[in-house]
Amino acid sequence: MTSVALGPTDQLDPRLLEHRRELTGYCYRMLGSVFDAEDAVQETMVRAWRGLADFEGRSAVRSWLYRIATNVCLDQLNGRQRRALPMDLAGSPYPPVEASLAGRRPAAAWIEPVLDRQVLPEDGDPADQAVARESVRLAFVAALQHLPPKQRAVLILREVLRWKAEEVAGLLETTVASVNSALQRARATLADVGGRPAPRTLDDDDRALLARYLDAFERYDIDAFVQLLHDDATQHMPPFEMWLRGRDDLATWMLGPGAGCRGSRLIQTSANGTPAFAQYRPAEGGGHVPWGLHVLEIEDGRIVHISSFLNLDCELFAALGLPTALD
């Protein structure tokens, strides 16, 4: 990556670069967008690089970077509408027909996915890693968007990153009492919007389920595909407002308006702390082009939800570091 302001990032002080991934994770939780998170981290690095000579070790570099990143995120969030997922906006599912695609919103309206490798630690305490995975789940990131920006920062710093109240108060230049009060209000809001997904890890049965998902989708065997779903499984497809519910409607969609996905290839990955597949649809001149990222939720041996983030603007896969074409 290269920045006009900084030049090649490998010329930055290593003390700054070693925190890039965790800062990206923090900014992603705050902003709900991989694009905005990358911009915020880049701006954080610019400000830190410019101020490093005057920093003089007044506090730990990590704490100093989080202070800068928090201010950058708060500036970005000033006056913005919250991002959401389609199921948060429409109370009832749509019919599985082409006309359901009529409602479309700009990218800035939606929560965006992020690959685990962009935001989660590669090693560390297993318990901390589990918390980190749950804290980038789509439901949790969407719930965070209901919080005022400073409450959002407090909750992430205290409950995800495990900062002490005194440390958060210092970062936000406020009192411990104010931090504790903000945390209580944030917890109450999250409880109301149901933003705490149950923690779980993949087992051998789940991995077998994912292998069958890939096989059925690539063969476009819809009968086999829907057998992997819960009866009331749901799917949404940002940037469209529509969402679907139930095996029958998902099958009808895939054999109707979604039939252009026949012949696709999938690449398995992990996004938002859960299994995911990058989908490439057949191109007219041969090969396959990026179409969407399927982020899956699994419960009781079946898939309960598919978030299909479509690559209609041709930017999502590039931002996620996924191949932009397959031969």
Rank of each mutant, 00 (worst) to 15 (best):
D313V: 01
N311F: 04
T2M: 08
L214A: 15
S270C: 10
L77Q: 15
R265M: 00
Y94C: 04
E315G: 00
G91S: 13
A198K: 14
R200A: 13
S59N: 04
R162E: 11
A198E: 15
W110N: 04
T234Y: 00
L326W: 12
A109P: 01
R212Y: 02
E38I: 10
R185K: 14
A153H: 05
W64D: 01
M30V: 12
A319T: 13
R62L: 03
Q227R: 15
R196K: 04
G25K: 10
P323K: 10
R247S: 09
D221Y: 08
K150N: 00
L183G: 05
H294I: 00
R67M: 02
L310S: 06
D313G: 02
L202S: 08
A102Y: 03
M237V: 11
A169E: 09
R137K: 12
K150C: 00
A319I: 00
I306Q: 05
S178N: 13
H230L: 05
V97K: 14
A84F: 10
T175D: 07
S307W: 11
A177R: 15
G25L: 05
F317K: 10
S100M: 02
P257L: 06
I267L: 15
L228F: 02
V193K: 02
Q118V: 02
E159N: 14
L16Y: 08
L157H: 06
L190R: 07
L74Y: 07
A211K: 14
F140V: 01
V141Q: 04
V114I: 11
G7S: 07
C73Y: 08
R21H: 05
D215L: 11
G292C: 11
D248H: 13
Q129N: 09
P257D: 06
Q11K: 11
G25V: 01
L214S: 11
L183F: 07
G32E: 02
N180L: 14
R15T: 03
E218D: 06
V72E: 05
G25F: 00
G301E: 06
A276G: 11
A107P: 01
L229Y: 05
L144C: 01
H236C: 12
G25Y: 03
L6P: 07
A177W: 05
G263P: 08
Q279R: 15
D300A: 15
R187K: 14
G321Y: 04
L210R: 05
A169K: 08
L16C: 08
D206K: 08
Y213W: 15
A48C: 07
R50A: 09
A251H: 01
R104G: 00
Q81C: 08
P239T: 12
D204G: 02
P86M: 08
A325R: 15
D248I: 10
L316M: 15
G91T: 13
M242F: 14
V226F: 05
T274Y: 01
L255T: 14
A325M: 06
A143P: 06
A37C: 05
S92G: 00
G246D: 06
G301N: 09
T324M: 14
I303G: 04
N272V: 06
K150S: 02
A132D: 06
A318Q: 11
R187C: 00
P126G: 12
L326D: 02
A165R: 11
V289A: 14
W253Q: 03
S59H: 07
